[in-house]
Amino acid sequence: MSKANRINKNSRRAVLAVSAIGCLLSIAIAVTGYEWLATIFLGTLLSFLTAIVWQSRTKAGNAEPSLLETPFYLAHDAEIFARYRQLAQEMLRISGRSDQIYRQCALKSLDAEVAQIAVIGDGKITFERTETWRLVYEKLLRDPSVTTYRSVALVRNSEYWQDGAGTQSMQLNFDLISEFIITVERTVILADSLWPTDSDLPIESLRQWIHKQSIQGVWIRLVRESDLSSESDLIGDMGIYGFSAVGFQEFDAEHLRTSRFTLDFEFASVREAEERWKRLNVYASPYKDLLDQFRVTE
């Protein structure tokens, strides 16, 4: 017997027992003939029933819908429901084919698709080997709910974000700051080769890139990658878009092209990223303060 069946059977027994006790009690009260006692009994019974109904409704609201209830739940979301129907229709077509080799291949492909949909269900959208994530990036930054964009740039190549796509994204940052749409904070983690330990500031080409951002209103902090060696989980490329999402960018071997970009819309992930952001900035120094300490030789 399954666990669910056992629970259902026990519940039925409990309901029968409570009903029997209630029945006996009402008979006993009727025999006594006291009206006030009957009123109290009825009032208590009514309250008890109300509580049970309320509790069962709350439970139903929290529980996931059953397989049969699923289409009814999805029906209120027209866009998702259209896709649900398409998926179901394709499943029917797949199921209608009897070739065993086809079936094995189809099941394998479906498993991969289900795994991908599960990731989307977890609130994550992944872009592989493409820069098209920048379109979503712009949508996010322009979203009225996003007023702050906090970004961590892991710079291991002096050309970082200085190609056409990167320059455009950077210009978007500047435009949005200028239009009062967002404020941008960026912490730049620099490989030691790009910011040698005996240098006050990063190599000139990167310093210029950082300086330009600072002039355009990005609040910049800098940290050497080696300074984070004891907290390696902080080393990574990340963007926090208000409270809406967090994005993680992974690069190819040359650290120039995006190999994967993952956007995570789960609130818990955003909070976790905020904690990382705070920890990272313990090690980082504002660019303005560095300029204040060290004179730039033109």
């Binding site: 200028s178 239009e179 009062f180 600072s214 002039i215 209103g217 303005k288 204040d292």
Partner: peptide, 18 residues
Amino acid sequence: RLPLVAEQFLAILRSPDS
């Protein structure tokens, strides 16, 4: 106080949104 702040100040003045 800083040349950086002066540059930022100028950038705002020269911005088409200002």
